[in-house]
Structures are given as C-alpha cells and as structure tokens.
Nucleic acid binder design. Structure first.
Length: 140
DNA sequence: TAGGCCATCTGGTCCT
DNA sequence: AGGACCAGATGGCCTA
C-alpha cells in the first residue's frame, strides 16, 4: 500500500473558523469518504482482473493496462458476435467451420481478425495491438 | 530522465 | 444527510 499523501483533513493546524466539533465531524466524514473511495476502486480493479482473465492475451507476459483490457474486451466481444452471426448464416450445421473460427481467435492473427470485425475502425489506429495486422489480409 | 500507468485524495454532482 | 460515482490533481514506481 502506498503511503498516504498529506491531506487537509489530516492537518490539525487548519485555521478554520468553525467549531472544533464541526471540524472533527467534517474530517471524519472526509476520511470515511476516502475509505469508501479506496474500497470502490479496489472493487473496480478486481473487476478488471477478472476481465483480464477471460480476455485473450496471446503471449503477452506483461499485464494488460486497464485501457488495453477494455480495448481487447471490446474487440473480443465483436469477434464472438461476428462468429455467431456467421454461424447463423452457415445454418448452424458446419461444425468444422465453426471450430476453425474459434481456432482463429487463439492464433497470432487474432488482432487482425479483431480489427477486421470492429465497426470502430478508427479506434484501431490507437490500439496497442494494431501492429499485428500488418501484411495480413482476411477475406470474408 | 521522460513518459506511462497507477493509487490516492479531493470536491462536485446526483440519487436515495 | 449521507453514499455512490466521477474527474482532476498529485506523487510514486517502473521501463525504455
């Protein structure tokens, strides 16, 4: 845990004109709010960790940042959605084709597939993974 | 050493 | 009134 920064609520030398009781009450509420905020952010970070576990990382030994995790989750959902759509188009019968689609999600070309399927094309320019797409062409 | 990422504090706003 | 949520500010840690 990081050391706390000094805060106005920690200072006892505040030249506040209010009564000491009111000041103490305000300080207590501020500290309680800080604690709640810490807890809330911890919950948010737990959710990010859970999301990281289900999102593909293919060889990334470094933990995805929060931004990267969200981008990857978005791409992953779009890809799965596209597979579902295409599966319906194939009349749900071609099991081999379906397996192939899921295999492609695990491959090195994953990011390419993702980018191709994303409706927010411009976002991909800023994606940390977009460099994987160079030189690969995907046909629909 | 600069830049990226993160945790924490804080004040504002909205909701119950 | 108090809690939840949010965004800005700030400072620490890490890596290229």
């Amino acid at each position: 845990m990081k050391p706390r920064r000094p805060s106005c609520t920690d200072s006892s030398s505040d030249s506040d004109s209010r009564s000491p009781e009111k000041f103490e009450s305000a300080a207590r509420r501020r500290m309680a709010a800080n604690a709640r905020e810490r807890k809330r952010m911890q919950g948010l970070n737990t959710a990010f960790d859970r999301l990281r576990k289900v999102v593909p990382q293919w060889g990334q030994d470094k933990k995805l940042s929060k931004y990267e995790t969200l981008q990857m989750a978005l791409s992953y959902i779009m890809a799965l959605s596209r597979i579902l759509t295409d599966t319906n188009r194939h009349n749900n019968s071609d099991r081999q084709w379906l397996d192939l689609q899921f295999d492609s999600l695990q491959s090195e070309n994953y990011a390419c597939f993702m980018r191709y399927s994303s409706p927010v094309e411009n976002e991909c320019i800023h994606s940390p993974f977009s460099y994987h797409c160079e030189g690969v062409h995907i046909q629909s």
